[in-house]
Nucleic acid binder design. Structure first.
Lengths: 251, 251
DNA sequence: TAGAAAAACGCAAAAACCTGCAGGAAAGGC
DNA sequence: GCCTTTCCTGCAGGTTTTTGCGTTTTTCTA
């Protein structure tokens, strides 16, 4: 059996059954476990499915929406979120980006926190509503559905009239030389406005984001005051950021 | 059974039942108590549920309240929502209030609808993100947490710069002589602005709202162009509204 | 405050996984 | 036709993840 044919059948099984067990598949296709595993690894790297221990789950474009991403919060993101919460203090005015890492921060805020939080994410706004001590300011705009964020000129303008103490930014790509990058052009303008409206700018970057770059440039690393990341990152990877004046925090 | 699958089912059980007993789950899923406990610990760590002695509860009280309210949507509200959907057409610009009845309307929209929807409810905005053909405009402001709505001067101003075809208004009190009333003062201003920015104003009123009045006055009944309500309402109760030029729709 | 239930902890076995390697098939150049 | 290169596959060995069990600790309840 050809490799392509096998992989096609794997995806087909996944579509019909909604899940897939690696060992069952090796029997059904009459190949070794390792071959199946290699196939699954390849397909996962190509983004055709989601690899899990024991098999795989579908990752169709429908499921790649925000709700699904929210569920697949990694351990790294949890650790970053936990560390980031320590930066937040009573009485502050805080600007919050959208994104799953920031959502985790919101879910870990102390129940009695007294603060004002400004956000252009309806999802974050809804999550913040459960904290009685937090005044929530929603920034409107045109909803960019893939990330559930308001964007556009109105959004940028609204942020520019705010003077916040802290800005929490979820990060897609962070590189000492390239700077902060993001895959969506419209959002880049908004992110710039958010960063310029806050005294301290905190980047939340789980391990896989460090040293990478995405399509559109947001700002140089020197614009950051803090970088919250995972404890497992080796020192030599963090030093370039320290040299640029960024304070590093881990859990 | 895959670990992810198991955890998904745990969350599902939690959503449907509103609570969860660890030992019951171990039987239902055919795994040991420890495995269930480990899963619950992980899910709690990721902020997906709230761990309690003996089992788990949904994490967010607000979302729980909202989920509950969404679930307890009465048959009347469903009927009203179904009827209201018929008023919506491709190409329209629609202003939408928050509230559970309006949320029901959103959930019943045709999947292929092409329209622009303006809302000051983050909850409605999130729900609308599911529809690829709908352009969503979020109106910002200060979040009034009890109803999950943006309010304030900025919100009023934002609405006043919009010219919509249709405005869907959830109703708290509607009376032929007293007019439209609402229990929250800040929102009254917003509602007025919403109504003035649309050619057609549609009131969504389930049976128990008709003939009642709440604390704060929004507008006279003559400001309405349509009233969507339940079929069971007797004619003599609807006639006063007809005389004021309101078109009445039922399911 | 005592007893029972639930949870946490440590441990070990099993399953799944990854890596490197070698045999074999297919493709292509000489 | 023959050799080289490339790719695919299965296997052996070591590592990681998951899971269930016994034990200890914590929590709840009467």
């Amino acid at each position: 059996m050809l490799k392509q044919e096998r992989q096609r059948r794997i995806l087909e099984t996944l579509r019909t059954d909604g899940k897939l067990i690696a060992t069952d598949l090796s029997v059904a296709l009459n190949v070794s476990d390792d071959t199946v595993r290699r196939d699954l690894r390849e397909l996962a790297e190509a983004g055709k499915l989601q690899r899990v221990h024991g098999g795989a789950l579908p990752r169709s474009s429908v499921e790649m929406n925000y709700a699904a991403r929210e569920l697949q919060a990694s351990a790294g993101k949890s650790a970053v979120a936990r560390a980031a919460v320590k930066l937040i203090e009573d009485g502050q005015v805080i600007i919050m980006d959208g994104g799953s890492t920031v959502l985790q921060v919101v879910q870990r805020l102390p129940a009695e926190l007294e603060a004002t939080i400004v956000t252009h994410s309806p999802r974050i706004a809804v999550a913040l509503a459960e904290y009685p001590g937090i005044e929530v300011i929603v920034i409107g705009g045109i909803l960019y559905k893939a990330d559930l964020l308001s964007v556009g000129a109105g959004t940028v303008k609204a942020f520019s009239s705010i003077n916040a103490d802290l800005c929490l930014q979820g990060i897609w790509g962070l590189h000492p030389e390239v700077g902060i990058t993001y895959p969506n052009f419209e959002e880049v303008h908004v992110k710039r406005a958010m960063m310029q409206s806050a005294d301290q700018v905190v980047a939340l970057a789980s391990a896989e984001k460090l040293g990478t770059a995405s399509s559109f440039f947001v700002a140089p690393v020197s614009e950051l005051t803090h970088l919250v990341t995972e404890r497992t990152i080796p020192e030599e990877m963090l030093n370039p950021y320290r040299k640029l004046g960024v304070e590093i925090l881990t859990d």
